[in-house]
């Protein structure tokens, strides 16, 4: 599972040091969304810089998953704008509020990988085929080259020996690592994680988090919706606490976890302390 320590990785570990000019990867400005009368996102502002790890935490129903899904337009946002590397997500940059065509949307999604809570592997394909499929269909690689690359990616998440296994033969942690391999094979500029460890048995959480730590160390830009406070505290550059569709607290983990005056946040964190003390 270890990712070879390269000079690039070594410099990447220093990325959280205040660099001269951070390049924004994702900029979210005034984004709102409602399902009928039910407002799920209220005027969200958030910037994620290149090579930065931002964790979204908050109680269920606070809108964190919805916000994440808006970033690659799996969810449509009603107001405001989201940009990835300057490109407006989901809508035309020239004609206001005109939806992008499917082809344009695909172009945008090529650079954004997403890892889901339920893994969402294709059960009728082996681990290798799961990883190779988009390489063939989206990247236009020939089957042999795609299989080679898929094998490398599986090795990178520590599953070289499971290439020919169907998902039903893999543990949850292994399935999620295949799902991560499927995404990194596409060399995304940005990765979105939607509660990647929430469906896992506790003893399998660690292996997935380790892969994510390795990705972060390699300089991947990541937005992670999570309930793993330890991961947020140790790996995230910044943490956003969402509450009822708003970002109620935002900053480096130390500030958010220990110095925020927000009573809802204190209460939210308290439930974790209680759960982990036995």
């Amino acid at each position: 599972m270890a990712i070879t320590e390269s000079p690039a990785a070594a410099t990447a570990t220093q990325r959280s040091a205040p660099a001269a000019e951070p390049t924004p990867m994702v900029t979210i400005r005034g984004v709102s969304k409602a399902y009928g009368p039910n407002v799920v996102l209220r005027d969200i502002d958030l910037t994620v810089n290149k090579s930065e790890v931002v964790c979204l935490i908050g109680p269920s129903g606070s809108g964190k998953s919805t916000l994440l899904r808006c970033i690659n337009f799996l969810e449509v946002y009603d107001r405001g704008e989201i940009r990835i590397e300057g490109q407006l997500v989901g809508y035309s940059d020239t004609t206001p509020r005109r939806r992008l065509s499917n082809a344009q949307l695909r172009g945008l999604r090529r650079n954004v990988g997403m890892v889901f809570q339920q893994f969402n592997l294709w059960p009728h394909m082996t681990a290798l085929e799961n990883v190779a499929e988009a390489l063939v269909q989206v990247r236009g690689m020939d089957k042999g080259a795609a299989a080679d690359r898929a094998r490398q990616m599986l090795a990178r998440v520590g599953l070289a020996d499971k290439a020919d296994s169907y998902p039903s033969r893999l543990s949850g942690g292994q399935q999620q690592r295949v799902a991560i391999a499927r995404v990194i094979a596409m060399e995304p500029h940005l990765m979105l994680f939607d509660e990647p460890t929430s469906a896992l048995d506790p003893e399998l959480v660690g292996e997935v988090l380790q892969v994510m730590r390795d990705l972060a160390a390699d300089g991947m830009t990541m937005v992670v919706v999570t309930h793993e406070m330890g991961f947020a505290a140790n790996v995230a550059d910044r943490v956003a606490f969402l509450d009822r569709g708003r970002i109620a607290a935002f900053g480096p983990p130390r500030e958010v976890f220990h110095e925020s005056p927000d009573p809802r946040l204190t209460q939210f964190l308290q439930t974790y302390h209680e759960r982990n003390s036995f």
Partner: peptide
């Protein structure tokens, strides 16, 4: 399962595929 289709969309796969 909706998630299987979403995963394909999020990878940028064309609808025919």
């Amino acid at each position: 399962p909706k998630g299987q289709v979403e995963a394909a969309h999020s990878l940028g796969m064309p609808y025919g595929g």
